[in-house]
Nucleic acid binder design. Sequence first.
DNA 1: AAATATTTCAAATGGCCATTTGAAATGGGT
DNA 2: ACCCATTTCAAATGGCCATTTGAAATATTT
Lengths: 217, 217
Amino acid sequence: MDKNLTTKERLIQAASVIFAEKGYRDTTVAEICDAAGANIAAVNYHFGDKSNLYCQVWEYLFEQSAAKYPLPTDLIETDPEAWLRHFIRSRVEQIFDTDIHHRLPQLLHREMGEPTEMHESLFEKYLQPSHQRVSKAIRLLIGPGISENQLKLAHLNFMSLHIFLNVGHQKNKTNCQCRHRLPSTENPAELARQVEAFAIGGLLATRDLIHNTGNLS
Amino acid sequence: MDKNLTTKERLIQAASVIFAEKGYRDTTVAEICDAAGANIAAVNYHFGDKSNLYCQVWEYLFEQSAAKYPLPTDLIETDPEAWLRHFIRSRVEQIFDTDIHHRLPQLLHREMGEPTEMHESLFEKYLQPSHQRVSKAIRLLIGPGISENQLKLAHLNFMSLHIFLNVGHQKNKTNCQCRHRLPSTENPAELARQVEAFAIGGLLATRDLIHNTGNLS
DNA sequence: AAATATTTCAAATGGCCATTTGAAATGGGT
DNA sequence: ACCCATTTCAAATGGCCATTTGAAATATTT
């Protein structure tokens, strides 16, 4: 561990990796301190407690990711389909990033599996903005006929694709042989194309369903 | 708790509910015994340990579910699309079942979020069969041009829809206000129709992608 | 009803882990 | 070199929880 960094910085960096790999609960303060080359009491001295360090890790990883994978802003009104295609590609890319940037989706994956006490506030702070844009884009794509409930469900379906891709990718890293593993992926771009096709195909089919049967709530 | 049942039976029934609601780790042996009206030592006496009780719960819930929601067998060769449509409807139905039957998807949801030590063996025993049939149906639907990797990904995409529906439904039951909640669902059948449309639309779009660009690995 | 096996019980035991503590080391300013 | 603030340290502390224990109660057998 780089001794040019302060203990506090080393703790955040070590914690980022370990929290992302094992989740909040399976990570012990002791092993973070070990990895950071710090004393067992360092986390409580510098951050108050484990949960606060966890929040700082979110802050840190979010900043890193937002810089490399920004959401496009324009396009969304003029061509929602293109915006959604870009969105999903960008997410898939990030999931397969080999740098620090893949730690955010990884952490997210853990947080979904076993939500911490900080769940609500973290999601509100870091995920709400992109969530609202995706929602808007889907509404524009499907058209004005969609109800709130239908929109929420279409949104959920859309998001589930890359979220679950992440799940499969994480499983791939363990020795777990069960289903829902991803094929070993030498070519993320090709994989992204297929997910993109599925996602847009699903949304367009949803649009057809909604527009061809007028009696849905 | 019904005193006509043996302590062992009461333990399994109480554990089914609590494990499904809170997951393996967040469930304490003490609260299971409480709910079953049994002594704190009852789990270890009747089952050896907590993990073995958990496996018995899987066995119990799986039997219940398999009886009410069997997989169709024929159809799959003659009309894979219809088979897949039926499959997804059946799963959505089960997720919204109000009886004991919704506990299996709920338990599954917990097991995915924080896999236990028994993960591998449970999945192999209870999920492998349906997994293979879905795989077969998707291959038949898309056609012979699909590679193993493409099939795995299409399968993952397909499954992610109802698995994530389950996630959203579980969130709905908590007071969690965050994204990925489902709209309050007074009408599961209508919801199932929309998921079905998305799923099949996604698969067909995947088929088009694969057949229109021959150079994918 | 005596003898034996099974089941229930309340009170330990022991492991794990976040957090605390108070002393020791370190560093900057004078 | 001395003072004071900051940081590091090893060794407690205390809570939580699965599991064990050995005695008491209950059921079954003869």
